[in-house]
Amino acid sequence: MKRFYLFGFLLLMGFDTLAQISFKYAGTQALPVAASLEWVLRVFGQPWVYGAVIGYIGAFFTWMALLKHAPIGPAFAASHLEVVSVMLLSVWLFDEHLNVARVLGAIAIIAGIVCLGMAESREHPPEHAEA
């Protein structure tokens, strides 16, 4: 079951990250914003919009599959790992800068997920088959 969680949350993070990065690229290519049909067609002519749609749909179905099995507290916390992955990818892809507040925030997110996971494992220890 641990492999299921690991694979599931990595897949969820991948889809969420794809959606956010694609949305960010689509937003930069949609400038200047205008309330016109030409602007809407320009937006939907960008491949990044479809990357965002695929990311959101993939994340939705992955999340629904995880919720059938994963405890809700750690699952909800782990579903926010894309905040960290998007922040790190944005440094590389969009030349954004890390600062102390962002790094501390990422550490707090990861620490929170670890704490919730540890608390959940203490409340529900794995069952061992006795032979």
Rank of each mutant, 00 (worst) to 15 (best):
L37C: 11
E38Y: 08
Y56E: 09
F76G: 15
A65G: 01
L37A: 14
I57T: 10
F61Q: 05
T62Q: 05
S79P: 04
L81P: 02
V53L: 12
G51C: 03
G73P: 07
T62A: 07
V83W: 13
F76M: 13
W48H: 09
F44T: 09
A52Y: 00
G58M: 07
F60C: 11
E82H: 13
G55A: 08
A70T: 04
S85M: 14
E82R: 11
W63Q: 15
A78I: 06
W39S: 10
A70W: 00
Q46M: 10
F76V: 14
A78S: 07
A52C: 12
Q46T: 11
V40Q: 12
V49E: 07
R42E: 12
P71K: 03
A75G: 07
F44W: 12
L66I: 02
G45T: 10
F61H: 03
G73L: 09
K68R: 14
P74F: 08
V86A: 07
T62M: 05
L41S: 11
R42V: 12
G51W: 01
Q46P: 01
W48F: 15
V83F: 11
V40Y: 08
V53W: 07
S85F: 08
Y50G: 02
M64I: 13
L66C: 00
P47W: 04
V43Q: 02
G51Y: 04
A75C: 02
A52P: 02
P74I: 04
W63M: 14
G45Q: 08
I57R: 04
V40N: 07
I57A: 12
Y56P: 06
V83I: 15
A70C: 10
L41F: 09
F60A: 12
A52R: 05
P71H: 07
L67W: 00
F61A: 09
W63D: 14
V53K: 00
V43N: 00
W48L: 06
V43G: 03
W39Q: 10
I54L: 15
W48M: 12
G51R: 04
W39H: 15
A77I: 09
V49Y: 06
I57E: 06
P74D: 06
F60W: 13
A75H: 00
V40L: 15
L41M: 13
G73R: 10
F76I: 12
S85I: 11
F76C: 11
V83D: 06
K68E: 13
L41H: 10
V86R: 05
L81I: 11
G58S: 08
G73I: 11
L41Y: 09
P47H: 00
K68W: 12
P47T: 05
E38N: 11
A77H: 05
